[in-house]
Structure formats: C-alpha cells, structure tokens
C-alpha cells in the first residue's frame, strides 16, 4: 500500500513539475494542483497505517495515525482556497489580455535592453536587413523555379 502511494506521489510530483514549467497559465494552475496533491499523498504516507482511529471501536494498537490525516485535510482546504483565488486572477488576466500566457516583466526587459542599447540596436537592424535579403533571395529562387 505504501509503495503504491509512494508511486502515486512520485507521478503526481513529476507531472506537476512538468506542467508548472510551461508558459500557459492554465497548465501552471493544473500543475500546481497536481503538485499539492502529491504533497498531500506524501503526507498521508507519513503516519502509521491501520484501522480507523475511533476509540471504542477497535484495538488502540491497530489504529492508524490520525494526525497526518488532519494535517492533509487542513492543507487541502488551504490549497483549495488559494487555487480558487489563482483561477480568479487567471480569469482576470484573460479578460484584460485575451491570452493566458505568462507575461514578461516590462521593467526587466527595459533594463536588459538599456544596458547594451547601442550595439543591440545596430545588431538588430543588421539582422533585420540580412533577414530581408535572405527572404528576397529565397523568393527570387522560388520565382525562378
């Protein structure tokens, strides 16, 4: 049982990590959901397995450890709330921009450009010219064929 749960947790962590590394917001949110599930499954495995811990029903020595369950429940409730908020923000972002890709930070881009501006601009201009030339040549070749 514990081995199965360990595999389940590992799979959830793996898939979750892959999805969190994506650029689309919707995938990141699903990835976070899977990651938190993985953490909760891991939490479940951390205590002793056994019968339901109800006093008066069974033998105390056979009881499962109830504390990780309580902690997992708390964690689930918290992630539920945060995920709902995250979805709301994602929806807001979609309304504002019509896209769910994570944006670059504007100020970062400005500074990255600001540091190397002169060379960057000339390079860009040259790169553009070269690209245009290449395109024109290609078009010419295609035209001849």
């Amino acid at each position: 049982m514990t081995v199965t749960l360990a595999f389940a947790a590992a799979t959830l962590f793996g898939v979750g990590t892959y999805l969190v590394l994506q650029r689309k917001l919707s995938r990141i949110i699903i990835g976070l959901g899977l990651l938190t599930h993985g953490a909760n499954v891991l939490l479940m495995t951390s205590g002793r397995a056994g019968d339901e811990p109800l006093i008066g029903v069974g033998d105390v020595d056979d009881f499962a450890d109830p504390l990780p369950h309580a902690m997992a429940l708390t964690a689930i409730v918290i992630t539920f709330g945060v995920s709902a908020l995250l979805l709301a923000i994602a929806f807001r972002s979609w309304i504002l921009r019509g896209d769910d890709e994570v944006e670059n930070d504007v100020a970062d881009t400005l500074i990255a450009r600001g540091g190397v501006e002169p060379r960057d601009v000339s390079d860009e201009a040259r790169a553009e010219r070269e690209a245009e030339q290449a395109e024109a040549e290609l078009a010419g070749e295609l035209g001849r064929e």
């Binding site: 969190v20 976070l32 990651l35 938190t36 993985g38 953490a39 909760n40 891991l42 939490l43 964690a75 918290i78 992630t79 945060v82 995920s83 995250l86």
Partner: peptide, 9 residues
C-alpha cells in the same frame, strides 16, 4: 504556492 507545497512536503 510552490513554496507552500514544498513546505508541506
């Protein structure tokens, strides 16, 4: 949220 997940882990 990622940090919190790591914390729970």
């Amino acid at each position: 949220l990622l940090a919190s997940t790591l914390f729970v882990t």
